[in-house]
Design a binder for these strands. Sequence first.
DNA 1: ACTATACAGAATATATAGAAGATGTATAGT
DNA 2: ACTATACATCTTCTATATATTCTGTATAGT
Lengths: 171, 171
Amino acid sequence: MASALITFARFGYHKTSMEQIAKAAHISRPGLYFLFASKEELFRDAVTQSLEEDLNEVERILGAKDRALPERLLASFDCWAGRYVGPLAQDITRVIDDNPALLGDVVDTAPRRFADLVFSSIAARAGRSEREAAAAITQTMISASIGIKHQADDRAAYLERMKVAIEVLLE
Amino acid sequence: MASALITFARFGYHKTSMEQIAKAAHISRPGLYFLFASKEELFRDAVTQSLEEDLNEVERILGAKDRALPERLLASFDCWAGRYVGPLAQDITRVIDDNPALLGDVVDTAPRRFADLVFSSIAARAGRSEREAAAAITQTMISASIGIKHQADDRAAYLERMKVAIEVLLE
DNA sequence: ACTATACAGAATATATAGAAGATGTATAGT
DNA sequence: ACTATACATCTTCTATATATTCTGTATAGT
């Protein structure tokens, strides 16, 4: 099913046929319609599941408090955004951004949940208990991530710059 | 001549004719060819001039040291990016970003010059004389600006978030 | 819980030709 | 230092017809 998302990403939503997806998933085309009512629902479910998985992993990373906060944040941003920087992976972000109407409110709620997770981790840190400051730092860190995603050519460049941003924003 | 850029922004480079530009500039179409060798050169010159003007104003703003640094930075980012957020103005950024091949190296050098100006102002500040820290802050501030530009719906929203980012990044 | 095949209806690609529009230049004029 | 008109050449729109592809469903089978 992750293969469906990859296929959508590779060719775009409209230029991807159910035939292609079925072949990539090693099942028949009618079999796809047994699992998903329509192409639109399949697309929605594939994106939603991918986002859910990423959010779960971010939650897991941020919860592992044996690692330092900057480290956890960098790993989280890598999982959430860095993974999708670069020649092949950026198509996944593209196909999501290009079809907001098909996806509904997941495209809004998932980023908000990510922001909440980051905020909680920053707010929980000792010595930085003011919620307002944590909110400002979170907001700016996410904006920086979005900007870096547009600037960076590959995942390594994203991580390099994001590491700097996290360090600077946490003092 | 600024009207040429606005016309390009409104319809896109390819769908804008020399006739339209000439009309907007209140001269004849052959008159345009007297001033500019080709449509491509006109586009290049219009964009270049616009960027130069913005950079000059940024330089002026950052040089006015009677105002506090965060204030000057916010005004600079507004001039450089905030101005181009929103329903009508964002087309200017779009037509520039969509046609990098026509524009040459200006699209690379101008942002670098903006970064240099911001860096100089931050590095010059007392108590923050370490160049590395200033470079990290500058880099992150610009990334945040790019991200906010993508997040914000209008200029006011951009300014609001950018104000927070500057405050957080300068401590 | 599927596969294989088949099919209607809709959307989309392909080809073609003609019309329209655009660029860049030239020329004559003020 | 331009305007107005005109023109060759090229690209882009428009329309139309045909062919292909795609979606969604149905049916029979395992």
